[in-house]
Design a binder for these strands. Structure first.
Lengths: 249, 249
DNA sequence: GCAGGTTTTGCAGGTTTTTGCACATAATGT
DNA sequence: ACATTATGTGCAAAAACCTGCAAAACCTGC
């Protein structure tokens, strides 16, 4: 068995079973454990797996550190949420993406508000669910583990059947020339569909992400109606967006 | 079981239940208590949990006031979950309803299990989402506030396109003559569809609900393959179901 | 084709990690 | 206060690891 072939097999096994033992691989492939160890070493350096004493684990194992994580820049996101809430009127149909900023928005919704909120983001849905007067529509499909949002053809098709009044987008990068960009293929698809189908698009982002670029393009600035950051709207960094005709808050 | 794997499991358990006992972990994972103690020691140094006499506590336990949401008859439900888990095999497609018994099932899933779980229950989806190796499919539609499950024509249609290997139903009433019944119209629709489309139907319920009736009919006993309660399977109350050809656990 | 260099692999050895056990000590409960 | 249970420490055996080395397989340029 060729080295490359062997390593491909190991990666396959890790992805399949989420763990492999050096001893098991050694006898399966019939090479010495030293060789397996060297393979694991290399694959680990390439980021294909996580090497541990006795074998290796899939990457999905490492990132189990959930609920009590502090949200990055939470204070800024609270300010953004306060501003964003003002755009929501009684009875509106509101489509939202995922992300921690959107969660803050959900928490900032006045209890008396009655409106219909639509989302494929599970954390967002959980927040909406606890609100007494919201109608909640869940967009179903395969759940993406890292973004905690449903992605796929079903979700896309469902979004395209909607004509929401308002769309809140938590975004990861916006730039005067390159528009809104992101790094996750599936998420980009969804956000594009959301932007296209909504009457009004509101982008939420902390100022840190302003004037930054990610590899995948979502839409140009012309599609954005409102941009909300934690900065005052006369801040110099925001002027290019005002000039582009966006309402900046 | 690898050390790292074991520690990941411990962290998961701590985050899930907010506390773990050294003794319990020792017998669950089948290593000596000394090893568990050393693990807790290390994890505590890494700040993943708080080590205390007898076990460990979640960090969030210390931060926030624990919203001691006690589930009714939780111990029984844990027993049920333990029994139910045994039916799930690697790679299966599993459809589940909602309800607290299903949540316990989700928490009892072994960390190494990789399978595809499908549900419209938001609390269930949240549990599945935290599991490192599950594929999760969310069934979308309007969210019913009191059952926290998506209901409607979309959800029904989606369920009917599936052919899952296994279906877990948390049920509210079962009776030798009247079969499985429930009280919520929308939920009944969903459960009917789930029963019809699944290869194998497993009903989970605490013994209290055995031999009781609710106003809406879901299905007859003939559609049920397996019934799981917290009672031993030779308990007299269960005999009518054994007689009906159901595998009782 | 073939000399010279590189890559891959197994092996020997010495080192480190992991784990369970024994025993003394501290915490807990009745 | 006393029995029970949990803890920490030291120890030893097994398992896994790392390092260097040498043989084999392989590329490469002439």
């Amino acid at each position: 068995m060729l080295k490359r072939e062997r390593q491909a097999y190991i990666v396959q096994q890790v992805n399949l079973h989420n763990k492999v033992l050096s001893t098991a691989l050694s006898s399966e492939i019939d090479v010495s454990e030293d060789t397996i160890r060297r393979d694991l070493q290399e694959l680990s350096e390439k980021g294909k797996l996580i090497k541990v004493h006795g074998g290796a684990l899939s990457h999905s194992f490492h990132d189990i550190t959930y609920p009590s994580k502090k949200v990055y820049a939470q204070d800024s996101k609270k300010i953004i949420a306060e501003k964003a809430v003002k755009f929501i009127k009684e009875g509106m149909f509101v489509l939202t993406s995922g992300g921690t900023t959107i969660i803050e928005l959900a928490r900032a919704l006045p209890v008396t508000l009655s409106a219909t909120f639509i989302s494929g983001s599970i954390p967002a849905v959980v927040e909406y669910m606890h609100h007494p007067n919201l109608e909640v529509i869940v967009i179903g499909d395969k759940l993406s583990k890292n973004s905690k949002i449903t992605v796929g053809a079903d979700a896309l098709a469902r979004i395209n059947t909607l004509k929401p009044d308002l769309c809140f987008l938590g975004i990861n990068a916006i730039h005067p020339q390159h528009g809104v960009t992101d790094s996750d293929w599936d998420v980009v698809q969804l956000k594009q569909a959301m932007v296209e189908t909504s009457q009004k698009v509101v982008c939420l982002t902390i100022s840190e992400k302003i004037n930054s670029i990610q590899p995948l393009h979502i839409c140009g600035l012309d599609k954005i109606d409102i941009l909300i950051t934690e900065l005052p709207n006369n801040h110099p960094a925001l002027q290019p967006y005002v000039a582009a005709g966006i309402t900046v808050m």
